[in-house]
């Protein structure tokens, strides 16, 4: 039983580590803020969430596990909000996306609005 628990914890911890590393690789390799945010907000959140779940599982206490699950739920709620805030601020401030970008309907809408303004 303890071996089984240790195995489950080990799998969670290593998976979390791999996701965290890949998120960091994404933050380094992707070409602009907006694409980097994809890596940080998805893989990064999943990575640290798995780690926290592993720690909760390892403790074998209901109270600690409940706290860990609440923490993960909290991260899942806040990570997209944080990414959204930064993306919105960056786009409104005028940081341009990479040249690979094929479509930017948000900038088009803004240009249209500016043209219609007297």
């Amino acid at each position: 039983m303890t071996v089984l628990l240790a195995l489950a914890t080990a799998v969670l911890v290593v998976t979390g580590g791999v996701f965290t590393l890949l998120a960091a690789v994404g933050v380094v390799r992707l070409p602009d803020v907006y694409t980097r945010m994809h890596a940080a907000s998805k893989a990064g959140t999943v990575g640290s969430g798995l780690m926290l779940l592993a720690a909760g599982l390892h403790s074998l206490e209901g109270a600690v596990l409940a706290r860990a699950v609440a923490g993960v739920a909290f991260f899942l709620l806040t990570a997209p909000v944080a990414a959204h805030l930064v993306a919105r601020a960056a786009h409104r401030a005028g940081y341009r996306p990479t040249r690979l970008t094929v479509l930017d309907e948000m900038a088009e809408a803004r240009r249209r609005a500016e043209r219609n303004r007297p």
Partner: peptide
């Protein structure tokens, strides 16, 4: 974005230290 990612990594570190 990178600083946010650093925080996420630090949370992972702390969780592993907890184990």
């Amino acid at each position: 974005v990178a600083l946010d990612m650093l925080v996420a990594t630090a949370i992972g570190f702390i969780a592993v230290v907890a184990i």
